[in-house]
């Protein structure tokens, strides 16, 4: 494992009931790069992503084996504070789910939860992260309005801001543009390219073109298995596996 590997997924198997969803997953995710998990729908991309911050804990009849090392610590084995683990990762889901509170409180939520309640500190942080998510210009005069009053593209940027506000090291994004219009999608993609200098980004998508646009590193999954992984350039220009070639040529989706 070299110095630049942020997340190391080692022999992970996951099943829910009798369904074997992830099969022998071995993946290395480099630090401060955009790693795209690519694959057709239902191949286990999202489940793999949820393993990383252990949102899978709340599933019934789930069985996970293997190791996931983050900063050289096995998060599957640790019985420590799971909220600490989750705080290291910002999650962006398929559709934005703003918390049922004001724009301001959405961003301040994570900070308040971890006990940082000083008004001046919060004001500064909220402004900082809204700017980082390119939302400040549109919202600075309506911070007290409910988050649900924003457009869906704005909501997704708000979700990004609130995720960044807990000061994560990793951003997990599960098809974050699938509910957005082209312009909003572009805004999010540009944001990711900008943010990768500070964060390790793991993005799940089934949109090939999106992967081409922003990926540094690709993990291609099919039916619960990792077929091929590596730097984006060699993946797209010089795929090694037959399945990858077929997928890239559009033989299946």
């Amino acid at each position: 494992m070299n110095n630049h590997t942020k997340i190391n997924i080692n022999n992970v198997n996951l099943s829910i009931g009798k369904q074997h969803i992830l099969k022998n997953i071995n993946v290395e995710i480099p630090e401060k790069k955009i790693t795209v998990i690519l694959g057709p729908s239902g191949c286990g991309k999202t489940t793999l992503l949820k393993c990383l911050n252990r949102l899978t804990d709340s599933y019934e009849d789930i069985n996970v084996s293997g190791n996931i090392f983050i900063n050289n610590k096995d998060i599957l084995k640790s019985n420590g504070d799971i909220t600490e683990l989750r705080k290291k990762m910002g999650l962006l889901s398929q559709r934005p789910y703003p918390l049922p509170m004001s724009i301001y409180d959405n961003v301040a939520y994570g900070l308040k939860i971890s006990g940082r309640k000083k008004k001046r500190f919060l004001n500064k942080r909220v402004e900082h992260y809204l700017k980082q998510a390119s939302l400040w210009e549109e919202t600075y005069d309506r911070l007290k309005e409910p988050a649900s009053s924003l457009s869906i593209g704005q909501q997704q940027r708000l979700c990004l801001a609130r995720g960044l506000a807990v000061d994560p090291e990793i951003i997990l994004a599960d098809e974050p543009t699938s509910a957005l219009d082209p312009l909003s999608s572009q805004a999010i993609e540009e944001k990711f390219i900008h943010l990768k200098q500070y964060y390790t980004i793991v993005l799940v998508t089934h949109i090939l073109r999106q992967a081409k646009r922003i990926a540094d590193n690709i993990v291609f999954m099919y039916l619960g298995e990792v077929i091929e992984q590596g730097p984006a350039e060699s993946f797209f220009n010089n795929p090694k596996m037959e399945k990858t070639k077929a997928y890239l040529s559009g033989a299946f989706n």
Partner: peptide, 15 residues
């Protein structure tokens, strides 16, 4: 209430 709302809150470090 959609499950993703719960997940959003959990992923922000809430218990």
């Amino acid at each position: 209430i959609p499950e993703q709302l719960t997940e959003a809150s959990l992923s922000l470090g809430a218990s």
